[in-house]
Each structure stands twice: as structure tokens, then as C-alpha cells.
């Protein structure tokens, strides 16, 4: 750690326009290394658009997305072609509507996540075709990593089942496991608690804290579930209509009248203050 201002991701003046619609307008924030940063906001605030810019699914209209690894290597994500962001910059993500390989087993899902490592080990397939020992041992290591993550997610006994057969909560956990199998520096989770019940989202909190503690992975998450956001995030960024309206600790954000106004849908700050006064 290089001191308190050690940011893994720095977003500066990010803008994303679709025709005349400004989905994200001049957004700047940073996510610190080894911390959990939450991106919250009402529906349509542009959270997923920010995610898609970070993970390369959209090319931002303007702005800079700088990712810095612990060894000081930096990547400008807006200049990297989509799959390279995951391959080189080590950014992994999950999706709001789960995207597993439904027809493949849990184990296969986790092995696909280690594609680049295995591809190198198999000598771009040629060594693997003749069963070179270097590849076999690499594959064994990959299976061990997959086994470790399946065990962490309590899915080990279902390793050989099709991912599409899993219950919703299990699919969410498997998607996180798959992202972690690519050994990311930054893990981006798009609404990981969506559709989970209270017990499951409590377990998710523990899981995310454990991932951060055991692997030092920085986490950036979009979330609607305030129990998740307030409990585990170190830092919260609030978006509304594509613009940042608050940025700080969960405590700070919780008491910001602008945030309350955005969430309650009241006309202006003054009303929000009045609403908050009324609550007290």
C-alpha cells in the first residue's frame, strides 16, 4: 500500500452519450485499492453505463479511466479493446441479468474463466493437443482453483451439474466465483444482491468482505439493496441522471439531502431537507 490515496481506478470526466441522451455526464470518482466502493443511484441513473464503460462494453464519449495495478502498471481502459480489459488490466465483472454458460457444468464455467492462462499453457493449443506435461499440470492447477472457489461458494458437491440447473442465488454466487477465477485486480459486481432474500444477502456481505480480506481484491459494486451498501462499502458514490450528486463514506452519503431527494423523488433540496426534518 502506498498510503491513503492509493487509487486502483480513477475515473475522470467520464461522459457517455447515446445520440442526444446523456447517460453519464462528466463523472469523476476514484476507487481505492483493497476497498469496497459502491455506486448507487435510482433506476436509470447511469450506473450500469459506467460499468459498461469500465469493462469495455461501451466506448466512452469522453473522459479517462485509469487503472493502476499494485506493481504500478497503469492501463487506460478507454483505449483497451473489450476483452483486453479483462485479460491485461485484470478487471472482472458480473452482470445484472446473470450471464452464465448455462449448458456447461459449474466446473467448466470456472475453467472458461481461466482461458488465457490455460491457452498460454497449452502452447496455443498445439502442446495441449499432444498432451504436453506442462499443460496437464496447468490444467490440474486450474481445476484446483475452480475447486477452491466452488468450495468457498458451497457449490462443490454440484460441480458436475449444468449451471442452468442452479437456483437463482447459487447462480449469482457462481458468477462471482467465475469472475474471481480470472484472478482480477478489480472486481465489478452489477447488483449482486438483486433477487436475494435477507439471509442470502447477509451471506453475500460476508462473502464480499472475505474476498477483500483474503485476496486483497478491490471491489466496485452497483447495488440497490441499502443493507448491503451501507454495511460493507468503504466508499459510496451516488449518481442521479448521469451526474454525481454525492461521494463519501456511507454515513456521509446517508445524510446528504441531495441523495434523499434523488431517492424519494422530491422536487428539490429544500423539500428533502423538510422531509428529513420531519423524520426526526
Amino acid at each position: 500500500m502506498n498510503g491513503p490515496s492509493d487509487a486502483i481506478l480513477e475515473v475522470t470526466h467520464l461522459s457517455m452519450r447515446f445520440g442526444g441522451i446523456v447517460a453519464v455526464g462528466d463523472l469523476s470518482f476514484s476507487a481505492e485499492r483493497g476497498k469496497i466502493t459502491a455506486l448507487i443511484g435510482p433506476n436509470g441513473a447511469g450506473k450500469t453505463t459506467v460499468f459498461n464503460c469500465i469493462t469495455g462494453f461501451y466506448k466512452p464519449t469522453a473522459g479517462m479511466l485509469q487503472l493502476t495495478h499494485a506493481d504500478g502498471k497503469t492501463f487506460l481502459l478507454e483505449r483497451l479493446f473489450d476483452y483486453r480489459i479483462s485479460k491485461l488490466a485484470k478487471v472482472a465483472r458480473t452482470f445484472q441479468n446473470i450471464r452464465l454458460f448455462a449448458g456447461m457444468t459449474l466446473l467448466e464455467n470456472l475453467l472458461v474463466a481461466q482461458h488465457n492462462m490455460l491457452m498460454r499453457a497449452s502452447g496455443m493449443t498445439f502442446l495441449g493437443l499432444i498432451g504436453a506435461p506442462a499443460f496437464t499440470s496447468a490444467e490440474r492447477r486450474a481445476i484446483d482453483l475452480a475447486r477452491y472457489w466452488l468450495d468457498r461458494m458451497h457449490l462443490l458437491d454440484r460441480a458436475d451439474e449444468a449451471a442452468g440447473n442452479l437456483a437463482y442465488g447459487d447462480q449469482r454466487r457462481l458468477e462471482i466465483a467465475r469472475a474471481m477465477c480470472s484472478e482480477p485486480a478489480l472486481l465489478c459486481l452489477d447488483e449482486p444482491a438483486a433477487g436475494l432474500n435477507a439471509r442470502e444477502s447477509g451471506a453475500l456481505n460476508e462473502l464480499l468482505l472475505a474476498i477483500r480480506a483474503d485476496h486483497g481484491t478491490s471491489i466496485l459494486l452497483i447495488e440497490h439493496d441499502m443493507s448491503v451498501v451501507m454495511e460493507i462499502s468503504d466508499h459510496v458514490v451516488v449518481l442521479d441522471h448521469g451526474v454525481k450528486i454525492a461521494d463519501g463514506t456511507p454515513e456521509h452519503v446517508r445524510n446528504d439531502p441531495k441523495v434523499v431527494a434523488a431517492y424519494l423523488g422530491v422536487a428539490d433540496e429544500a423539500t428533502a431537507v423538510a422531509v428529513m426534518e420531519g423524520q426526526r
Binding site: F95, F101, G103, E108, V112, H115, R178
Partner: peptide, 20 residues
Amino acid sequence: PIGRAWEALREDEIACRSLG
């Protein structure tokens, strides 16, 4: 890995890209 990537591609191309 190449064969698994083919099948993964058939299952979900976007997820493939997100996995590098």
C-alpha cells in the same frame, strides 16, 4: 481451452468477452 471457449461462445458471447 480453445474447445471450451468455442462452446462458451455458443452459450454467451458477452460473458466470454467479459472473461478476457
